[in-house]
Design a protein around this nucleic acid. Sequence first.
DNA 1: GAAAACCGAGACCGATTGGTCTACGTAAGC
DNA 2: GCTTACGTAGACCAATCGGTCTCGGTTTTC
Lengths: 207, 207
Amino acid sequence: MSARGPAKQFDPEVALERAMEIFWAEGYACASLADLLAAMGIARKSFYDTFGSKRALFERSIEQYSVKVVGGMRATLQAPGSPLANIRRVVGSIRDDAATPFAPGCLLGVAMAQCSADDPDLARILRRHVARVEQSFADALARAVEAHELRADLDVRGTARLLTVALQGIRLLGRVTETRELTDGAVAAALAVLDAASPSTATTALS
Amino acid sequence: MSARGPAKQFDPEVALERAMEIFWAEGYACASLADLLAAMGIARKSFYDTFGSKRALFERSIEQYSVKVVGGMRATLQAPGSPLANIRRVVGSIRDDAATPFAPGCLLGVAMAQCSADDPDLARILRRHVARVEQSFADALARAVEAHELRADLDVRGTARLLTVALQGIRLLGRVTETRELTDGAVAAALAVLDAASPSTATTALS
DNA sequence: GAAAACCGAGACCGATTGGTCTACGTAAGC
DNA sequence: GCTTACGTAGACCAATCGGTCTCGGTTTTC
């Protein structure tokens, strides 16, 4: 810890952020060292001194992503006020994320689709983050039930999982979609799921 | 077309099937030529004579997958009898697909997560197949509405899209999940969406 | 000023990539 | 029996991969 020399001339956090974006857009295998170094704006030597290996950088990128995106999602879900409104806000925000043509989708989803079958370590990391997202949804749904915003007999766990997989699916399909048609429809239907579970609309929604 | 020599000593269809499985499990980038050739059981020369390139093989594998899996799904959806029961059957069958630990998920989903941002050709192919799945769901939902199995004011298009993205999400998350817990919950919730849209339960689902 | 820690540029490494090629064996049609 | 098309086996290619290395230069602390 004796800093005899000068401080780092680049910000590791910023470099990690840039690397995350490359992994996000290209995937692990397709993101070459050259791509990463160019985006990070640092030299090969500095990269290995700071991050160790491409694989280590990837895991740190996932962590960075989780802190940023998933953390933001959880913060919104746990915000004070109407739990149901918070859930709607999170689901609706996917529409904005997937608004740009060929959106990068979810980095965690992209990572899942990589060669993770023979990579239990990576699978465990991803599983943990997915569980956190699901739990955040479940907590918010439970609070909404408690606030009588949703029916008392709602399958909280199942609904949380449905929202989780639906969001992953939306972001995945957003990677190849150039319009927001598909995501809009899916988001609307996902919100309709919450409507259907509302105690007030269950009586009025007669055909 | 003048077959002066002997017939092919291997079945291109079988070889394509094997290649599809490799792409399915490993992804495009991670599936090396050596992996593919070993699985296909043919020589390098025969491979390039028959399929042209790795990329061409991948596109044909996607086509093969669509004919097999997506085609099977569409056939089930279009089977005679109750349209709603057919939809339930398709959604429920995902549970079986994702039952095995670290299931390969959906090849189309895996392909979407690859470096498709700068690959409009592949994106177009995938988009077409997704649209076909969604349309099949939409048709079945419309028939269910017509048969008074679902509410007349159901958002058919949105629900079809929700089912499409939810299925993609389930299969994606199944790649890193070792138990069928998550998929079971999500499938149950997806089926509950259909329940909520049933004209008979809308009146009785009071809290 | 010397030492230490950092930087970028780039040579270099073995391994692997997708793809091409030749050599040789073999079975079907003339 | 010759030709032709197909097959396998495997050498071979340039390019790229992730990773290590040296070099020269700079900034900070001692």
